[in-house]
């Protein structure tokens, strides 16, 4: 029997007729590696990602996570398993440690330092005011916070769109490490360069539908990766 997809979309539509953000999407994302979802602005990339942790629900069709209908899952339990890092880093009031405790109430200094290390920040950041971090630092703090739920899947919604080149490279390297550690990642981008740099698998969206999908080598061609 073949492996169940990480996420499978069966005839999924989102939005009212005439203003669909996804329109009868059929696609499957593999349960390993880094899948990049790409497409032009308005193609439905973020909407697709938000369906995966049920921040949105389809108006038609079914979304499955590892074979089970997402609509039948306890949303809080699902979101504990399927973490998400957003386009703009959203830190909460207080220190970075306070932010980590929002995800894991029992997060002590040792655990906090370990989470920050996985996100490329040293332990001194724990007591820093989260509101005073740079864009790149804040996004890594958000990654650490998302990791604090011990997720089995990581969703990244254009997480480098507000970062400079250096901060982007750091975040890409960290996520690569996450994938190497066995956590599948779904990464949304509109940047073709980033798509080519990162993708193991690709889903290209156009007008709310799957345009092309498959292994990056097949979809993008060997030479340019």
């Amino acid at each position: 029997m073949s492996e169940a997809a990480l996420f499978q979309f069966d005839s999924v539509s989102v939005g009212p007729p005439g203003a669909r953000r996804l329109d009868g999407l059929d696609a499957a994302l593999p349960d390993h590696g880094l899948t990049v979802v790409a497409g032009h602005s308005g193609a439905g990339k973020s909407t697709l990602l938000r369906l995966c942790n049920r921040l949105e629900v389809p108006s038609a069709g079914v979304v499955r996570h590892r074979g089970s209908d997402v609509a039948q899952r306890d949303p809080l339990e699902l979101r504990g398993e399927v973490a998400m890092v957003f386009q703009r880093p959203v830190t909460f009031a207080g220190t970075v440690h306070d932010n980590l405790r929002e995800a894991d109430r029992d997060c002590d200094a040792v655990r906090g330092a370990e989470l920050l290390e996985r996100a490329g920040l040293d332990a001194s950041f724990l007591e820093r005011d989260a509101g005073e971090l740079s864009g790149g630092e804040a996004q890594r703090a958000c990654l650490a916070r998302a990791l604090a739920t011990d997720p089995r899947v990581m969703l990244m919604d254009e997480p480098t769109s507000s970062l400079d080149g250096k901060a982007t490279a750091v975040l890409e390297r960290l996520v690569r490490q996450l994938v190497a550690g066995g956590t599948p990642v779904v990464w949304v981008t509109h940047s073709e360069e980033q798509l080519r740099r990162l993708a193991d698998h690709v889903l290209l969206l156009a007008d709310g539908r799957a345009d092309r999908s498959g292994a990056a080598k097949e979809v993008l061609g060997d030479g340019e990766r």
């Binding site: 979101r79 957003f86 998302a146 739920t149």
Partner: peptide, 9 residues
């Protein structure tokens, strides 16, 4: 939504 995504009710 960042809080909801962490599994908060």
């Amino acid at each position: 939504e960042a809080r909801l995504a962490l599994g908060q009710p």
